[in-house]
Write a protein that binds this DNA or RNA. Structure first.
Length: 909
DNA sequence: TAAGCGACTTGAAGGTAGAGCA
DNA sequence: TGCTCTACCTTCAAGTCGCTTA
């Protein structure tokens, strides 16, 4: 499959999706394989970077290329991630104690040894770095105060001291790791090369200059209002397509059946804050306010199937209008519900037709019930035993709970990782009683098997619930959802996204996260901040508890927040994506991307000029921007050492790219190979312009693998520059822009107006896939993919046989019909129709096969939800008569209700 | 001015309801 | 009717980016 890369400005961007994919999958499922190489980085902290920059100015001479080669060679053999923390040391101590581990854990030890080797190597690297610093060439565009230098010296000394300690520890370890490293590394290399041979999906070349239609686009965009995202109404008129039948309908009132006490109490208060909300609308022109009175309508019916239901709301409107602005699924009377299998009707708050407030406030009234806490721990039955060193031990409740977290994960890859085990054991010991801690010294002697079996039994039991049990559970969950799952915001009932507080468990960091396995503690009401309006009913904490604080901050969108203990990060309870607050932000995001479309030529011209700039920082910025624009790379903020070592554009290191003057018949090829967000591997071979290539050579000059490629750049300065080019522009906007424009162009290119609906859907999925490839949205091959493909193939073969048979039947029937009576002619027609039906079925199956296979390693959902302007898809559906349900499921339709309403068949991004 | 924090978006994994099939 | 499989949905980790603080 070939897809056009909208931003590529010269040659073919040979992204190896399949080859890449296989590596990625290995990386994810075999634990270390792919990530290992990437962990090989010698992450230079920001202080190091600063230090490097400083020395840049002092130095003039250069390293010989041979010494660099040596460095590179050695670094690749040793592949390491060097993070010096006292916790590491502790873990290493633990590790030394656990000598008699099972085979599985021996492997982990190897990995730890591997790390110690890396540590040794690190001090070498540090020496190299300071050598290099002495030799590096200078730009002479920065000065630093002597005090900052002092600080840096101190921190460097500290680093060295740490290295010294580490080395001492390392001496006690086995020294066979280097050969293992080499083996591992060569395996990785092997994989890379084999994956390269696999089938490729390439991004085809694309002209850098915008295609002719851009001018038309621009003209159209210019015609939009200039004042921000409300300008998105360009095509609102065309929304009549689906809504004309409702346009003049009055607002519907709430169903009188609503009797739930909770519901009523909320509803009663709605009147009050509805008043508040309408007061808050005082700045809205009268006409608009009048219009907004009509905002609450049912979800636009898009399909003809839905049209049958139109009469129902019309009947409703005759009833007295009370609390008319609050309409939700829950408040709908049974009459308004559709038959099983069809969508429930919903009342829709058409916030996108209201004027947006620009004063930074997010709401005037906010009321909710607070978050739902995880159920308390239920101790194990007495017959489920935990054993240590073969002896039965009754654990204290707290220790047992944490042991249970581990037991549940025994089958998971995580428990084969030393970091995970060490972190778990360390945190587990903290919750043990002193007697337990005294006794339980070695994780490998712990037998969690019975606990694991018990949890598996529970899980089986849950799966085998009777119909009645399932129904009861469902009803209970619906009750909970009803009570905690909604809030009242400015007179409207809106769904909350995540009202449940995260339950305790073991932290599952992705990739090689240094904190994986740590205990995520139970969150208590005393940890939780509540945010709601002063005049709302303040949520009650669970009995016997109190909230940490109750705030009334209407400049933020969260309802509750707490700080999790593993990474000390704030967690929030926020609204569902279908809410106004989220939808408005989403809409704004796509309007910013459309604004970028208007000035993208200018920006591209500018960064091309900057490739020749005198200042190194300007050149680096320009090359980075080129990558962000053309390859849709993420910005790449700096990360702390206690996070997985992943990078984005600005944080790329020398080791993450390879330069080839010529590769596979193409000139000036840059090979990217790094771990990005979520430790997903990014591998791409990109032919670039000569000037970019030369600049990269310059940026890499006299640098070690572990050095930053763009050492004069960070995301903050890049974004500041972007803001100068266009208000609201950040690195992230390029990703949205390129994703959306790619979809639009691919749809144009791949859609045959005369094709059948299944064929059009395949075209849509292919366009979507092109974007997913551009954004590197990968997924593991679904479990049982090959099995299901085999089944599908068998089905196709059976269908083919049926078609063959039917063809023979038709041949025979045609002969008979020629000879004979009306009856025989009728029989012949019938057989022909049957044949057509079978052929259609066969075609559908074949399309399904193609689609499924092409999709096996590509995740379409992420781009669809986050990067593709939904109006492009909606307009395509409307233009080509494809039911929107074929493209968006119910949740997605809820999220993109605004787009479904406003985009007509002529919408252009 | 770098570092840290807060608020939000983006992202893949994993569990499960229910569609589809024998 | 029971079983299989997958699309959907939830979960929570990991990004981005703006603002504040030291």
């Amino acid at each position: 499959m070939s897809v056009e890369n909208p931003t590529s400005d010269n040659d073919c961007d040979s992204r190896k999706v399949n080859g890449n994919k296989s590596e990625h999958v290995n990386g994810m499922h075999n634990g270390y394989s792919s990530s290992e190489k990437h962990k090989s980085s010698h992450k230079s902290s920001s202080k190091d970077k600063h230090r490097d920059k400083e020395r840049d100015h002092k130095s003039s001479s250069k390293h010989s290329s041979s010494s660099r080669d040596k460095e590179k060679h050695s670094s690749k053999n040793h592949s390491s991630s060097h993070k010096s923390s006292s916790k590491d040391k502790e873990r290493e101590k633990e590790h030394d104690k656990n000598k008699d581990r099972s085979e599985k854990e021996k492997d982990n030890k190897d990995k730890d040894r591997h790390r110690s080797d890396k540590d040794r190597h690190r001090s070498d690297k540090d020496r190299h770095r300071s050598d290099r610093d002495k030799h590096r060439s200078s730009d002479g565009d920065k000065k630093h105060s002597s005090s900052s230098k002092d600080k840096e010296h101190k921190s460097r000394d500290k680093d060295r001291e740490n290295d010294k300690h580490r080395k001492e520890k390392d001496k006690h370890r086995s020294d066979n790791s280097s050969s293992k490293d080499k083996e591992k590394h060569s395996k990785h290399k092997e994989k890379s090369s084999s994956s390269e041979k696999q089938e490729k999906i390439k991004l085809e070349p694309e002209e850098y200059k915008e295609i002719v239609t851009t001018n038309n686009l621009k003209q159209e965009i210019k015609e939009e209002s200039e004042d921000g995202f409300m300008g998105g109404n360009t095509t609102v008129s065309s929304c009549d397509y689906s809504l004309s039948q409702f346009k003049d309908e009055p607002m519907l009132e709430m169903a009188p059946e609503e009797s739930d006490e909770q519901e009523m109490s909320l509803a009663d208060r709605k009147t009050a804050h509805k008043r508040a909300a309408s007061e808050s609308q005082e700045d809205i022109p009268l006409l608009q306010r009048k219009k907004s009175k009509k905002k609450i309508k049912r979800e636009p019916s898009y399909n003809s199937e839905d049209e049958e239901e139109e009469e129902i709301p019309k009947k409703k409107k005759k009833k007295p209008e009370k609390r008319k602005s609050i309409k939700t699924e829950e408040s709908s009377s049974p009459v308004k519900r559709k038959k099983k299998g069809e969508e429930e009707e919903q009342e829709v708050w058409k916030w996108w037709e209201e004027k947006k407030k620009d004063d930074g406030t997010k709401w005037q009234f906010l009321e909710h019930k607070g978050p739902l806490f995880a159920p308390p721990y239920e101790p194990l039955p007495s017959n489920v035993k935990f054993r240590y060193d073969g002896k039965e031990i009754r654990l204290s409740e707290e220790a047992e709970e944490v042991a249970g977290f581990y037991a549940r994960m025994l089958d998971h890859d995580y428990t084969t990782k030393a970091t995970f085990n060490n972190n778990f054991f360390h945190d587990w010991k903290k919750v043990m009683t002193s007697e337990e801690a005294k006794l339980i010294k070695d994780l490998s002697k712990c037998d969690f098997k019975e606990m694991q079996a018990y949890f598996q039994m529970l899980s089986e039991k849950n799966k085998n619930r009777t119909k009645e049990e399932k129904a009861a559970l469902k009803a209970k969950n619906e009750e909970i959802q009803k009570e905690f799952g909604f809030c009242i915001i400015d007179g409207h009932k809106e769904k909350i996204g995540n009202f449940r507080i995260e339950p305790p468990g073991l932290f599952r960091g992705r990739g090689e996260h240094p904190k994986m396995g740590m205990l995520k503690k139970r969150v208590m009401p005393e940890d939780v901040l509540i945010n709601c309006s002063k005049d709302s009913k303040i949520p009650k904490p669970p009995s016997g508890h109190k909230w940490k604080e109750v705030k009334h901050d209407n400049t933020v969108t969260w309802l509750a927040s707490w700080t999790e203990n593993v990474q000390s990060q704030a967690k929030y309870v926020m609204l569902n994506p279908s809410s106004k607050l989220k939808g408005e932000k989403d809409w704004q995001k796509y309007e910013t991307a459309r604004k970028l479309h208007k000035c993208i030529d200018k920006i591209r011209d500018q960064y091309r000029l900057d490739w020749k700039a005198k200042e190194m920082r300007v050149r680096q910025r320009a090359v980075a921007l080129y990558f962000i624009d053309r390859l849709a790379l993420r910005a790449g903020n700096e990360k702390d050492d206690d996070q997985a070592d992943t990078v984005g554009c600005c944080s790329l290191r020398v080791e993450h790219i390879e330069l080839h003057k010529e590769k596979d018949g193409k000139e000036f090829v840059v090979v990217f190979d790094f771990l990005g967000k979520d430790s997903i591997r990014y591998y791409n071979e990109v032919p670039v312009e000569k000037r970019v290539f030369k600049n990269l050579e310059l940026f890499m000059e006299n640098k070690k693998d572990s050095d930053d490629l763009f050492d004069r750049l960070n995301t903050q300065t890049l974004n500041e520059h972007l803001k100068d080019l266009m208000p609201g522009l950040t690195a992230k906007v390029f990703r949205t822009y390129n994703a959306s424009i790619t979809l639009q162009r691919q749809l144009e290119e791949l859609t045959d107006p005369d094709a059948s609906v299944p064929e059009k859907i395949l075209a849509y999925n292919r366009a979507n896939r092109a974007v997913a490839i551009l954004c590197n949205h990968q997924r593991a091959v679904p479990k049982g993919h090959s099995k299901s493909m085999e089944a599908l193939k068998e089905k196709i073969q059976a269908k083919r046989d049926q078609v063959d048979e039917a063809e023979e039947d038709v041949r025979q029937a045609t002969k008979d019909a020629k000879r004979g009576s009306v009856k025989e002619k009728l029989a012949c027609d019938k057989k022909k129709k049957a044949l057509d039906r079978l052929r259609d079925q066969l075609k559908k199956l074949e399309l399904q096969e193609t689609d499924r296979d092409e999709n096996k390693t590509i995740a379409l959902g992420t781009s669809k939800l986050n990067y593709l302007d939904p109006r492009i898809s909606v307009s395509w559906c409307k233009k080509h008569g494809v039911p929107i349900e074929k493209i968006y499921n119910k949740t997605q339709r809820d999220k993109f209700r605004w787009a479904i309403d406003m985009a007509g068949p002529d919408y252009i991004f």
